[in-house]
Computed example of a mutant assay.
Amino acid sequence: MSDGALEAPPGGARLVAWYAAFAAISIVANLGSQKIALCLYRGPYTVALSVCVGTAVGLVVKYVLDKSHIFRHEDRSLGHGIRTFVLYVVMGIGTTFVFWIFEFGADAIFHTEAARFMGGAIGLTAGYFTKYQLDKRFVFA
Protein backbone atom coordinates (compact mmCIF):
# COMPACT_ATOMS: atom_id res chain seq x y z
CA MET A 1 0.00 0.00 0.00
CA SER A 2 2.67 2.43 -0.96
CA ASP A 3 0.34 5.02 -2.51
CA GLY A 4 -2.19 4.94 0.34
CA ALA A 5 -4.89 3.20 -1.71
CA LEU A 6 -6.71 0.17 -0.40
CA GLU A 7 -5.11 -3.00 -1.66
CA ALA A 8 -7.66 -5.50 -2.89
CA PRO A 9 -6.44 -9.05 -2.54
CA PRO A 10 -6.09 -10.97 -5.79
CA GLY A 11 -8.58 -13.68 -4.86
CA GLY A 12 -10.07 -15.95 -2.26
CA ALA A 13 -11.96 -15.11 0.88
CA ARG A 14 -10.35 -11.70 1.24
CA LEU A 15 -11.55 -10.69 -2.22
CA VAL A 16 -15.07 -11.79 -1.30
CA ALA A 17 -14.87 -9.74 1.90
CA TRP A 18 -13.70 -6.61 0.05
CA TYR A 19 -16.32 -7.06 -2.66
CA ALA A 20 -19.04 -7.50 -0.03
CA ALA A 21 -17.86 -4.40 1.85
CA PHE A 22 -17.87 -2.33 -1.34
CA ALA A 23 -21.30 -3.69 -2.26
CA ALA A 24 -22.55 -2.61 1.18
CA ILE A 25 -21.08 0.87 0.69
CA SER A 26 -22.77 1.10 -2.71
CA ILE A 27 -26.10 -0.06 -1.28
CA VAL A 28 -25.92 2.61 1.43
CA ALA A 29 -25.01 5.22 -1.21
CA ASN A 30 -27.93 4.12 -3.39
CA LEU A 31 -30.57 3.97 -0.68
CA GLY A 32 -29.21 7.04 1.11
CA SER A 33 -29.36 9.13 -2.04
CA GLN A 34 -32.89 7.85 -2.64
CA LYS A 35 -33.86 9.09 0.82
CA ILE A 36 -32.25 12.46 0.18
CA ALA A 37 -34.06 12.74 -3.15
CA LEU A 38 -37.35 11.91 -1.40
CA CYS A 39 -36.71 14.69 1.13
CA LEU A 40 -35.87 17.22 -1.57
CA TYR A 41 -38.67 16.48 -4.02
CA ARG A 42 -42.32 15.64 -3.44
CA GLY A 43 -44.23 15.70 -6.68
CA PRO A 44 -45.15 13.56 -9.63
CA TYR A 45 -43.11 10.35 -9.92
CA THR A 46 -41.36 10.98 -6.60
CA VAL A 47 -40.49 7.33 -5.95
CA ALA A 48 -39.42 6.59 -9.53
CA LEU A 49 -37.19 9.66 -9.63
CA SER A 50 -35.63 8.81 -6.27
CA VAL A 51 -34.88 5.28 -7.46
CA CYS A 52 -33.23 6.68 -10.61
CA VAL A 53 -31.10 9.03 -8.49
CA GLY A 54 -30.12 6.14 -6.21
CA THR A 55 -29.32 3.91 -9.17
CA ALA A 56 -27.02 6.54 -10.68
CA VAL A 57 -25.23 7.29 -7.40
CA GLY A 58 -24.83 3.60 -6.55
CA LEU A 59 -23.54 2.85 -10.04
CA VAL A 60 -20.81 5.48 -9.87
CA VAL A 61 -19.75 4.53 -6.34
CA LYS A 62 -19.61 0.82 -7.20
CA TYR A 63 -17.74 1.47 -10.46
CA VAL A 64 -15.02 3.52 -8.77
CA LEU A 65 -14.56 0.96 -5.99
CA ASP A 66 -14.62 -2.08 -8.29
CA LYS A 67 -12.37 -0.55 -10.89
CA SER A 68 -9.65 0.60 -8.54
CA HIS A 69 -9.77 -1.90 -5.68
CA ILE A 70 -11.32 -5.14 -6.90
CA PHE A 71 -10.09 -5.36 -10.48
CA ARG A 72 -7.19 -2.88 -10.22
CA HIS A 73 -8.01 -1.63 -13.68
CA GLU A 74 -6.13 1.26 -15.25
CA ASP A 75 -7.39 3.01 -18.36
CA ARG A 76 -4.94 3.32 -21.25
CA SER A 77 -6.64 6.47 -22.57
CA LEU A 78 -9.76 8.58 -22.18
CA GLY A 79 -11.45 6.55 -24.90
CA HIS A 80 -10.54 3.30 -23.16
CA GLY A 81 -11.92 4.65 -19.89
CA ILE A 82 -15.19 5.65 -21.53
CA ARG A 83 -15.46 2.24 -23.19
CA THR A 84 -14.83 0.52 -19.85
CA PHE A 85 -17.53 2.58 -18.12
CA VAL A 86 -20.03 1.96 -20.94
CA LEU A 87 -19.37 -1.79 -20.73
CA TYR A 88 -19.80 -1.61 -16.95
CA VAL A 89 -23.18 0.08 -17.41
CA VAL A 90 -24.28 -2.39 -20.10
CA MET A 91 -23.35 -5.36 -17.90
CA GLY A 92 -25.42 -3.82 -15.13
CA ILE A 93 -28.65 -3.39 -17.10
CA GLY A 94 -30.01 -6.84 -16.26
CA THR A 95 -28.90 -6.66 -12.64
CA THR A 96 -30.51 -3.23 -12.36
CA PHE A 97 -33.81 -4.72 -13.49
CA VAL A 98 -33.47 -7.35 -10.73
CA PHE A 99 -32.91 -4.55 -8.20
CA TRP A 100 -35.88 -2.56 -9.52
CA ILE A 101 -38.18 -5.62 -9.52
CA PHE A 102 -37.41 -6.26 -5.86
CA GLU A 103 -37.71 -2.61 -4.84
CA PHE A 104 -40.86 -1.78 -6.77
CA GLY A 105 -42.32 -5.21 -5.96
CA ALA A 106 -41.88 -4.65 -2.22
CA ASP A 107 -43.43 -1.20 -2.62
CA ALA A 108 -46.43 -2.62 -4.51
CA ILE A 109 -46.98 -5.37 -1.93
CA PHE A 110 -46.33 -3.53 1.34
CA HIS A 111 -46.79 0.16 0.43
CA THR A 112 -44.14 1.41 2.87
CA GLU A 113 -40.83 3.14 2.37
CA ALA A 114 -39.09 0.71 4.73
CA ALA A 115 -40.31 -2.29 2.73
CA ARG A 116 -39.31 -0.64 -0.53
CA PHE A 117 -35.79 0.04 0.79
CA MET A 118 -35.54 -3.53 2.09
CA GLY A 119 -36.62 -4.85 -1.30
CA GLY A 120 -34.04 -2.59 -2.90
CA ALA A 121 -31.28 -3.86 -0.63
CA ILE A 122 -32.22 -7.48 -1.39
CA GLY A 123 -32.36 -6.78 -5.12
CA LEU A 124 -29.00 -5.00 -5.11
CA THR A 125 -27.39 -7.84 -3.18
CA ALA A 126 -28.76 -10.44 -5.59
CA GLY A 127 -27.66 -8.40 -8.59
CA TYR A 128 -24.11 -7.88 -7.32
CA PHE A 129 -23.43 -11.64 -7.29
CA THR A 130 -24.09 -11.80 -11.04
CA LYS A 131 -22.50 -8.41 -11.72
CA TYR A 132 -19.12 -9.54 -10.40
CA GLN A 133 -18.98 -12.45 -12.87
CA LEU A 134 -20.01 -10.24 -15.79
CA ASP A 135 -17.48 -7.54 -14.87
CA LYS A 136 -14.68 -10.06 -14.43
CA ARG A 137 -15.34 -11.68 -17.81
CA PHE A 138 -16.36 -8.75 -19.99
CA VAL A 139 -15.51 -5.37 -18.46
CA PHE A 140 -12.20 -5.67 -16.65
CA ALA A 141 -10.81 -8.72 -18.50
Rank of each mutant, 00 (worst) to 15 (best):
T55Y: 15
F110C: 04
F104S: 05
A21S: 14
G12N: 02
D107L: 14
V60C: 08
L15C: 03
Q34S: 06
V86G: 05
L87Y: 10
V47E: 00
G127W: 09
F129A: 05
M91N: 09
G94W: 12
G105R: 01
L38S: 04
K67A: 10
V86Q: 12
A121N: 01
L38M: 13
F22G: 00
F97K: 02
Y63A: 02
R72S: 06
A126I: 11
I122P: 00
T55M: 10
K62C: 09
L65R: 05
H69V: 14
Y41N: 05
V57G: 01
A126C: 10
S2C: 02
F102V: 02
H80Y: 12
V28P: 00
I93Q: 03
C52P: 01
G127E: 04
V28W: 05
M118R: 11
G127D: 02
A20N: 07
G54Y: 05
S50Y: 09
G81L: 04
T130G: 07
T95H: 01
H111V: 08
I27K: 01
R42L: 13
F97L: 15
S33H: 03
H73C: 03
S33T: 11
D3R: 08
A21Y: 12
L59D: 01
F117L: 10
T130H: 10
G54R: 10
I70P: 06
I82R: 08
D66T: 06
